[in-house]
Amino acid sequence: MNAIRRPPPPSHWILPWLALSFYLGLAGAPVMALGERELEEKVQAITVQLRCPTCQGISVKDSAAAFSRQIRDKVRRMVREGQSEQAILAFFVSRYGEWILRAPKKEGLGLVLWVLPGAAMVFAGGLIGYKLLRGSRGARDATQGEPAAQLTAEQRARIDRDLRRFEEQI
């Protein structure tokens, strides 16, 4: 009598199948998530450099305005197309002018804006240092010098007179 071969119960094959699917899912997920994350990081790195056209002092990255949303989408499309950060920024500068950049370019007049605050601080620091140095040197000279030698006989007599009067009052 032939034994009837029954198919294995579902518990025998469903669990391995689920485990395999789960493993493959996990294995595939990081690849997809990393790609999207990298894309978003690039988009954010670019849009933070762009000024929101309809807001005051907010970057395109941080703005909820419709124009900013459209610019973010445009940047995302350009990054997906493989365009470089410089090319994307150049596109917006060619449409909006240098105004669209939140930081001035480090060339021409823009370079002056970068250098001026630092130069002003160095100048102010140097001026303060010079004044302090001169002040302390002046004080040292005043204590180390011979002021008595510069007094006239009349001034010396007056000082002596005043000191005597002061001592008498004590």
Binding site: P53, T54, F67, Q70, I71, D73, K74, R77, F92, R95, Y96, G97, I100
Partner: peptide, 13 residues
């Protein structure tokens, strides 16, 4: 919907 012409013309509003 993506605002292609607006962005191409550098619209502020």
């Amino acid at each position: 919907a993506e605002g292609d012409i607006s962005l191409n013309y550098g619209l502020y509003g």
